[in-house]
């Protein structure tokens, strides 16, 4: 059930990337796909009745959730922000040159 909802979120983002004609909408779709992926990783690492993987006094033998997907997602979140910033700056430059976000009207890409 939870896995299916994650995949549904990913598919909504994919739908935005495939169908939408506005550059900002495409960037939003990519962000939604990223979020769905982070969510999927965090869900895969969750353990029933587990606590956050931080060792404190008195909790040395507690049941911890899987820390490996969390470490991978931590890396991916920051990279996602950098990719979004790069895409937005490219979109702003395209708007300055062509005066539109519509990808069907951005034809003269050279020169």
């Amino acid at each position: 059930m939870i896995y299916l909802l994650c995949v549904l979120l990913l598919l909504i983002g994919l739908y935005g990337v495939l169908v939408k004609k506005n550059l900002i909408k495409i960037i939003i779709g990519l962000s939604i796909m990223e979020y769905a992926l982070f969510l999927f990783f965090a869900v895969i690492g969750y353990r029933e009745g587990g606590t956050a993987p931080i060792i404190t006094k008195g909790f040395e033998k507690a049941v911890f959730v899987d820390p490996l997907p969390q470490a991978l997602v931590l890396t991916a979140i920051v990279i996602g922000l950098a990719v979004t910033a790069l895409l937005v700056s490219l979109a702003v430059r395209i708007y300055e040159k062509h005066g539109t976000f519509d990808i069907r009207k951005i034809r003269r890409l050279k020169g």
């Binding site: 965090a42 969390q70 979004t84």
Partner: peptide, 22 residues
């Protein structure tokens, strides 16, 4: 809820920055 506080902290900062950029 999924017991990942580090991810929550980073996601708050990153989401705010992404919204400001957009």
């Amino acid at each position: 809820i999924l017991q990942a506080p580090d991810l929550a902290i980073v996601q708050i900062v990153v989401e705010t920055l992404a919204l400001i950029i957009l």
